[in-house]
Computed example of a mutant assay.
Amino acid sequence: MIVVEPLSRHPRHVGFVAQLVWREFWADVDDGMTEAELAEAFGGRAEPGRVLASLIALDGDVPLGCVHLIDNDDRSLTELYPWMAAMVVVPGRRGQGIGSMLVRALMREAKAMGFEQLWFGTDGPGFYERLGAVKHLAKGRDFWIMRLPLIEGSG
């Protein structure tokens, strides 16, 4: 059975999550974050207020994916807060509903923290639109800043 839990409950998987996120989002970025920096951030050693929550999907003790709630993921849009970031599922398990589980769990977590919406950037808006997100701003070709309402009727 797949469960989604705070990464802080599974510190042995911080390195795996950092590697997964680095490979998916940072490996081809010059001057991007390193695996070590990601591991520090996801392991609870980010600057205060930077990483608000990190969730991991597990099948038993096998990590399948992760998602994070952070202060901001776009320096040009500092007024947008907070951000869903680095949602990724291991390649062999994509298309099985794990990403949706992760997003919904983060939505519950953010709502419990008192947030009314999440912001994020993606080149795959259709997946998130099925979960209630709306396009907010085009940022280049095929990349969108999106808003995910957490309160009924605020779409």
Rank of each mutant, 00 (worst) to 15 (best):
W22A: 06
E24K: 12
F25N: 07
W26Y: 13
W26T: 08
M33S: 11
E35R: 13
A36P: 02
A36L: 02
A36W: 00
L38A: 06
L38R: 01
A39P: 06
A39G: 03
E40A: 15
A41R: 12
A41Q: 11
G43S: 12
G43Q: 06
E47Q: 14
P48A: 13
P48I: 08
G49A: 12
G49R: 09
R50W: 15
V51T: 09
V51L: 06
V51W: 03
L52E: 14
A53N: 08
A53S: 14
S54D: 07
L55W: 00
L55H: 03
I56V: 15
A57V: 01
G60C: 09
D61L: 12
V62R: 15
L64I: 03
L64F: 02
G65Q: 03
C66W: 02
C66N: 12
I70C: 11
D71N: 11
N72R: 05
N72G: 07
R75I: 09
L77I: 04
L77T: 10
T78N: 10
E79R: 14
L80A: 07
L80G: 10
Y81N: 08
Y81R: 15
W83A: 02
W83M: 04
W83V: 01
M84T: 08
A85E: 04
A86Q: 11
M87Q: 13
V89I: 05
V90F: 03
R93W: 07
R94D: 10
R94E: 07
G97C: 09
G99I: 00
L102A: 01
L102W: 04
L102D: 04
V103F: 09
V103G: 03
V103P: 00
R104G: 05
M107W: 00
E109D: 11
E109A: 10
A110V: 04
A110R: 00
K111G: 12
A112K: 11
A112N: 12
M113H: 12
M113R: 15
G114M: 07
F115T: 05
F115A: 03
F115S: 03
E116P: 06
Q117C: 13
Q117M: 10
L118C: 04
W119M: 03
G121F: 02
T122C: 08
G126Y: 09
F127W: 08
E129D: 01
E129M: 11
R130P: 01
L131T: 07
L131E: 05
G132N: 05
A133G: 04
V134E: 13
V134C: 08
V134L: 11
H136R: 05
H136K: 02
A138E: 15
A138M: 14
A138Q: 14
